[in-house]
């Protein structure tokens, strides 16, 4: 039960991060190895903003929630124009280029922010005890055992992630910019022949993808901490999730994130964390062998 809830929190954050990665790959065909660093940058910036803002925790956090993703988005757009555009979005060269971006971001953070892990205070954090039930002599009974609890903040993270994911979906399906992005994704050359400024669409998509990772990070820093090496795990897990869910499929990504994180949480509690990782990797291998387009991916070349 507790494992499920903890799993749901990390699943929500992972879903946000993975959707960012999936969006970038889907539209731009760029495997963004620096995605985890945008995540890390979001967390670190959240700490800076919260630190500078001072005052009540909610003020700093609220500010970070807006500033960090926007700033990371701008940095990503800059990286797109300055680097990815120059290598012509060639699949192999963009991988190498984003590895370069990864190290630049990571080392600059180390030089300025330092090697410490620093926490950000959550804006609100009340303990919510959770009920448990038991069959006793008197029959069915509910009670509140000590230690079985969650916090209001964790529930808010799940809710906020849900809202953001829904917004992304609406953005893609209902708005003009979403239409432009999908057209570019489906056929870049024809999109150009119909006046779609593909370069600008790419910069926006890259910024949104990085911004989502940063947003996920801001949500998670009050629970974990901001550290310059924290980008590795979300990157790896995002790739796992995106492969299982099917590239470019938003619902697939969300379902895969929940699947991976919940099973990870539950298996870690009852067996061992290593077994959870083994199973997740095995699942990736099985998906790649039997359903290379992912569980939810449509058939495409």
């Amino acid at each position: 039960m507790l494992a499920t809830l903890e799993g749901a929190v990390t699943a929500a954050v992972l879903a946000l991060t993975a959707v960012g990665l999936s969006l970038v790959f889907g539209v731009m065909r760029v495997v963004n190895v620096a995605h985890g660093e945008f995540f890390m940058l979001g967390a670190v910036l959240a700490w800076w903003v919260a630190h500078l803002a001072g005052g009540h925790a909610a003020v700093g956090f609220g500010l970070a929630l807006v500033v960090a993703p926007v700033l990371v988005g701008l940095i990503a757009a800059l990286a797109d124009v300055a680097v990815l555009k120059r290598v012509g979005y060639d699949p192999e060269r963009t991988i190498v280029a984003t590895i370069g971006i990864l190290y630049i971001i990571q080392q600059v953070t180390l030089m300025t922010y330092g090697p410490d892990a620093r926490p950000v205070e959550p804006p609100f954090n009340t303990r919510i005890p959770l009920p448990w039930f038991e069959f006793t002599d008197q029959g069915f009974a509910l009670y509140w055992p000590w230690g079985l609890s969650t916090t209001s903040y964790k529930l808010a993270v799940i809710g906020a992630s849900g809202v953001v994911l829904l917004t992304v979906r609406l953005l893609m399906t209902r708005t003009r910019i979403g239409l432009l992005m999908r057209a570019t994704q489906l056929d870049r050359e024809t999109a150009l022949a119909f006046g779609i400024p593909v370069d600008r669409v790419y910069a926006v998509v890259f910024a949104i993808g990085a911004g989502l990772a940063a947003l996920a990070a801001v949500l998670i820093v009050p629970i974990s901490q901001a550290h310059y090496l924290m980008g590795g795990d979300p990157l790896l897990l995002s790739f796992i999730v995106v492969i299982i869910g099917g590239l470019g499929s938003l619902p697939g990504t969300v379902v895969a994130a929940i699947l991976i994180r919940l099973s990870d949480g539950i298996i870690s509690v009852f067996f061992s964390p290593t077994l959870a990782k083994i199973l997740a990797t095995l699942l990736v291998a099985l998906v790649l062998v039997f359903r290379p387009q992912g569980l939810f991916g449509g058939a495409r070349a």
Binding site: L179, R182, A183, L186, D187, E189, F194, I196
Partner: peptide
Amino acid sequence: RLFGELTVAQNLEIG
């Protein structure tokens, strides 16, 4: 070279 996953209306909207 249609935008295959988009609807007819959306293809026309792009035009």
